[in-house]
C-alpha cells in the first residue's frame, strides 16, 4: 500500500481529527448555522427577497437610539471601572500576604452569580424602601426615600445599573489579571528589585508592562460582554434604561418579530466584531490577547 495512504488511514494520524469531529460538527450546527440564519432573517423578507426594511424598522423605533446610547454609555463607564478595580485587587492579592488565597476566592465569588441574580441583589439595595434609603434615613441624611429607580431619575437609575454590573463582572477581569500576574516570572521581579525598583516603581515599570496582554484581553472580553448587558438592567431598572440586547428580547418576545429581533442580534454581533477588530488593530500582541 502507498505509504502516504497507509499513514492517512493509520489511527494515530486520524485519531485527533476523530476526537475533534463532534465539536466541529456542533460548532457548525449550533454556532455557524444560526449565525448565518441570523443574517438571513435580518436581511430577507418572508418571500425571500433581500430587504433592509427590518433594519429601517429597528432604527426608526423610538427606543433604538436610547438603547444604543445606554449600551455604549454602560460599556464606557463599566469597563474602565472594572479594569481599575480588578487591577487593584489583583496587585493586592499578588503581594502574597497571609490569607491572600482566601481573599482571592472571596473577590472571585461574583463570577458564579448570574446577571439576573445580581440585578435582583442590587434591587434590594436601591429599591424605594431598600437598604440604601433605610441606611441614609437612619443616619439622618434624608427624610424621605430617594427614588433611585424611576423614569424621573434616569441618571440615578443608570448609576444603579453601573454599580450592579461593576460588582458582578469585575471578577472575570480579576481572574484574567491574576492569571497574567502568575505568568510573570519571579526572576524578573527579583531582577527589578536588585536593580533598585521597589514598591510602586516595580508595579509601574515591570509588572504593568508585562501584564499588558492580560489587560488588553480583559478589555476586549469585558467590552464585548458589556455590550450584551441585559438581565441586570431588566431586573434592576425594568424598561427605564433600554439596552440593545433588551430590545432584541422585546422584539422577539413581546412583538413576535424575529426579523427585527435578528436585526438587533446581527447589529450587536457586528458591533462586537467591530470592537474586537478595533482593539486588535490598535493594540499590540494580538495572539496573546485572544489567548487571554
Amino acid at each position: 500500500m502507498d505509504v502516504r495512504l497507509r499513514k492517512l488511514l493509520g489511527t494515530d494520524t486520524l485519531l485527533p481529527y476523530w476526537l475533534l469531529l463532534p465539536s466541529i460538527v456542533f460548532i457548525g450546527v449550533f454556532f455557524l448555522m444560526p449565525l448565518f440564519n441570523a443574517i438571513m432573517l435580518a436581511f430577507r423578507a418572508d418571500n425571500g427577497a433581500f430587504t433592509l426594511d427590518y433594519f429601517k424598522k429597528m432604527v426608526a423605533d423610538v427606543r433604538f437610539i436610547e438603547a444604543l446610547k445606554y449600551t455604549f454609555l454602560l460599556a464606557i463607564t463599566i469597563v474602565p471601572l472594572q479594569l481599575i478595580t480588578a487591577l487593584a485587587m489583583a496587585l493586592l492579592v499578588n503581594t502574597g500576604f497571609r490569607g491572600s488565597r482566601f481573599f482571592l476566592y472571596l473577590f472571585a465569588l461574583p463570577l458564579g452569580i448570574s446577571d439576573l441574580a445580581a440585578g435582583l441583589i442590587w434591587l434590594s439595595i436601591f429599591t424605594q424602601h431598600g437598604f440604601l434609603n433605610s441606611i441614609l434615613y437612619s443616619l439622618g441624611i434624608i427624610e424621605r426615600p430617594i427614588y433611585f429607580i424611576s423614569y424621573q431619575n434616569t441618571g440615578l437609575t443608570f448609576l444603579a445599573v453601573v454599580m450592579a454590573e461593576h460588582w458582578r463582572a469585575t471578577a472575570i477581569v480579576l481572574v484574567i489579571l491574576v492569571a497574567g500576574l502568575q505568568m510573570i516570572s519571579k526572576d524578573y521581579l527579583e531582577a527589578a528589585e536588585v536593580l533598585g525598583a521597589r514598591g510602586w516603581k516595580k508595579v509601574w515599570y515591570v509588572i504593568l508592562p508585562m501584564l499588558k496582554p492580560s489587560l488588553q484581553s480583559a478589555l476586549i472580553i469585558r467590552t464585548i460582554f458589556a455590550l450584551q448587558t441585559f438581565a441586570v438592567v431588566l431586573a434592576l431598572a425594568g424598561d427605564i434604561i433600554p439596552v440593545l440586547a433588551g430590545e432584541a428580547y422585546f422584539w422577539h418576545f413581546l412583538y413576535r418579530n424575529s426579523h427585527v429581533a435578528s436585526a438587533y442580534a446581527v447589529f450587536l454581533m457586528a458591533i462586537s466584531i467591530g470592537m474586537t477588530w478595533f482593539y486588535l488593530r490598535f493594540l499590540r500582541s494580538r495572539m496573546e490577547v485572544i489567548r487571554g
Binding site: F30, M33, M40, I224, Q228, A261, I290
Partner: peptide, 19 residues
Amino acid sequence: ILITRMFPTALLAVPLAVT
C-alpha cells in the same frame, strides 16, 4: 475556540428559535 469564547453566543438564540 478562543474566538467563539469571546463571541456573544446567547444572541444566536434569536435565529435558533426559528430553526
